[in-house]
Write a protein that binds this DNA or RNA. Structure first.
Lengths: 228, 228
DNA sequence: TGTAATTATTGTCAATTCGACTTAAAGTCG
DNA sequence: CGACTTTAAGTCGAATTGACAATAATTACA
C-alpha cells in the first residue's frame, strides 16, 4: 500500500454518559452548535487534540460539558465507529471512539462552546430522538453494554455515591434492567458475594427501618452473576 | 476548538487472530517489512483505505494474510489504542482499531506485501516476544477477552468446525483457560443449556465409543455461564 | 402515646443446580 | 476375545435459588 492511499481522518471521542435521575436511567445529550449537524441532539464529545489520547479527550469533554473530574465517573471504552457514511457533513472522514461514562448524582450538564443546550434525557426518550450522525446506534450499544455488564461485574456501584444501601443498589438494577427484584433474595446474594460490597458500620435512616451503609468492595467481576 | 488544532491521524486495523493448533491456543504473528518497526514481530494488520470501514479493512487483511473469507472466521471489535506514544515510528499519529478473530483449522498464514514472514505462535510464547508498538498489550487484551467471553457466550464454537463433538468443545475450554474440566459434568451442562449446541444425528468414530456430532445452536449468550 | 405503615433484614423450605464420583455403553486395538 | 479408551448417563450430598413468611426498627400520624 503506498502512503498516498492511506485514509487520513479526524478522530472524535463521544460519550454515552449515563446516570439515574429519580430512578430513571438517563443520558446526557447536547444540542449541537458546530456547522456539522447544527441544531441536532447528539452525544457529548469532540475531536482529539494533537498529543492527546482518546481517553484524555473523553475526560476533557466530561470536564468541559459536565464539570466532572476523574474521580466522579467511571469511564470505559465502548467501541469505535468508522463507517465511511457515518458522518458526511465534515470535510474529512471522522471516526469516533465511544466511551461509556457512569456516575452518580450528576449535575445538569452545561452548554459549552460546542453546545447550544445540554440536558439529561431518559434513555427511552433519547433513543427515539433521531440523534446526529450514528449516535442513536452508539447510544443503544452503550445501554446494552451497561445492561449486560451489570450481571457479571460490579459496575452497578458506579451509579451510586461512595456509600449506599443495599436497596439503593437494588434500585440501580431495577432501573437499568426495568424489572423488579425480590428484596430479600437480592440482599442475601449481594452480601454473600465476596468483595461486592463492604459494610461501613454506619446506617442511614429514612422511612422504615434504618439501612446499613456499604461501600463498593474490591471485586470487579461477579460470580455467580446477578440474574435478571 | 479551531479546525487547525484537530488531530489528523492514520487509522490502522490490527488483528488478534486466535486458533487452536494441536490443542494449544495460538496467535497469528507477522514479521514486519515496512520501515516502521521493520523486522519485528507484530500482529497482522494495516491501514484503512479511504472509503473503507475498520471492519472491512480487518476482513481485507485476513484475506490477504491468511486467505480467510468472512465465513471462516468470527470477527469482533476488541478496542482502540490511541496513546500518542504508542507508535513514534511513523510520521503521523497512528491509532489502531483492534479486532479479535477466532477460527478453526486456520491454514499457515502467508507473508504478504507487508510481511517478511508469518506464522502461528502459541500465545504463551507470543506474549514474551517484545512485539512491535503496543501489540503485546493488544494481544493480552485479546486473550483476556477470549477467556472471559467463553464463560458467558457461545464463542467457543467459533474455534471449531461446523460440526464437532462435546469433547472437542470441552477441549476448547481447557486449552483457552488452561484448566481441566470434568467430562461428565461438562457434557451434562452443555447439552442441557438451551440453544448452545444442537445434535446433528450423526456420530464420529475414533478410539473408544463413538461421539455424537453437534453444531452450534442459535444462542449467543449463556446463562447459567460455564464456570472456570 | 399508641398503632399503623414502611422499609430492612433474617428465616424457611422445596426445587434446582453443582461437583465429585461411579457405572454403563460402544467402540478400537492387538 | 480381552484390554483399553472414550462417551454418555446415573448417583448423591452439598450448595444455591426463588418464592414467601417472619421479624426488626424505625417514622407517620390519629
Amino acid at each position: 500500500m503506498s502512503r498516498a492511499d492511506r485514509l487520513v481522518a479526524w478522530v472524535a471521542a463521544d460519550i454515552v454518559a449515563l446516570t439515574l435521575r429519580d430512578g430513571v436511567l438517563s443520558v446526557a445529550l447536547v444540542k449541537r452548535k458546530p456547522r456539522a449537524a447544527r441544531g441536532r441532539w447528539a452525544l457529548p464529545g469532540g475531536f482529539l487534540l494533537p498529543g492527546e489520547s482518546a481517553e484524555q479527550a473523553a475526560y476533557r469533554e466530561l470536564a468541559e460539558e459536565g464539570g466532572l473530574g476523574e474521580r466522579d465517573v467511571r469511564l470505559e471504552q465502548l467501541g469505535t465507529y468508522s463507517d465511511p457514511r457515518r458522518d458526511v457533513e465534515h470535510e474529512k472522514r471522522v471516526i469516533s471512539i465511544a466511551y461509556l461514562a457512569l456516575a452518580a448524582n450528576l449535575p445538569e450538564p452545561v452548554a459549552g462552546t460546542d453546545a447550544a443546550d445540554a440536558s439529561w434525557v431518559p434513555v427511552d426518550q433519547a433513543v427515539g430522538k433521531a440523534l446526529a450522525f450514528d449516535h442513536t446506534r452508539i447510544l443503544e450499544d452503550g445501554i446494552e453494554r451497561a445492561r449486560s455488564k451489570l450481571e457479571y461485574s460490579t459496575l452497578a456501584t458506579s451509579f451510586l455515591d461512595e456509600t449506599f444501601t443495599i436497596s439503593e443498589l437494588r434500585s440501580v438494577y431495577e432501573a437499568v434492567w426495568g424489572v423488579r427484584l425480590d428484596a430479600a433474595n437480592f440482599h442475601r446474594k449481594v452480601t454473600s458475594t465476596d468483595g461486592f460490597v463492604e459494610a461501613t458500620g454506619e446506617e442511614r435512616r429514612g422511612r422504615g427501618r434504618p439501612a446499613k451503609l456499604f461501600r463498593a468492595g474490591s471485586a470487579t467481576s461477579l460470580n455467580p452473576p446477578i440474574t435478571r
